[in-house]
Amino acid sequence: MSERVFRVWRGSGDGGGLAEYRVEVNEGEVVLDVLHRLQATQTPDLAVRWNCKAGKCGSCSVEINGHPRLSCMTRMSVFEPDEVVTVTPMRTFPVVRDLVCDVSYNYQKAREIPSFAPDPAKKPGDFRMQQVDVERMQEFRKCIECFLCNNVCHVIRDHEENKEHFSGPRYLMRVAELEMHPEDTADRRLIAQDEFGMGYCNITKCCSEVCPEGIRITDNALIPLKERVADRKYDPLVWLGSKIGRRPKDTPPVPNVGRYSNRT
């Protein structure tokens, strides 16, 4: 057991600041354990979002000493013995209170992506897919929707105005996943570029670096999606086809999904 200094951001959407606490820390603990101890012993109304405390649900995303991380998977042993631990909310999303953000941006973006569309002639049980083919998408489906990738992405982290036109790594990866699904029949390449802002991504790989699941978002999802978009836009055969009246069947944007409301 030892004592640590924690600085925790307290406040609301209207503003706030770092509050300092001295708190007990025991062997093997993670940052979330210490936040829970603060709640139980010093400040019962400290707002922290969490669920499983096992790295499986992606609820407890915060920034710890400036690094976007899950607080349940950040062990206290990674800090120097006398290092002050500073915990702040994710910067890209509006603060609700203390360490809790309004992440509804993400749910809005999810709703804009045209859903999985199997061949209507097929019925449940008809699919035959090889392990090697599903493994590519399975990597993306490890995503626990902690939104740390969207939080760290500079396209929206410092540019509120880009949010409307950019879905962020999480949802561009979702587009890539659907495009790679062997049984999917939709073609989202054009809207990936025009609606979801694929072109904003300049593959700095910040998203891959913060992913707690170790998903290679940039290499395995975003770059292949960029290549597919390029195929759709610049493939000479597609161009020739369009000239002789064989138009590609691009899936249109989903109508009327509008702005996601956390309306009450």
């Binding site: 859903s115 999985f116 199997p118 097929k122 019925k123 449940p124 049980g125 699919f127 035959r128 897919m129 090889q130 392990q131 599903v134 998408m137 399975q138 489906r141 699904h181």
Partner: peptide
């Protein structure tokens, strides 16, 4: 079994057997 196959039809990606079914 019906409920599992329905999930697959909605996009779930279960691990596969050698002949391409759900493992």
């Amino acid at each position: 079994p019906e409920r599992i196959l329905e999930l697959e039809y909605w996009g779930a990606l279960f691990d596969r057997t050698a002949d391409g079914r759900i493992s």
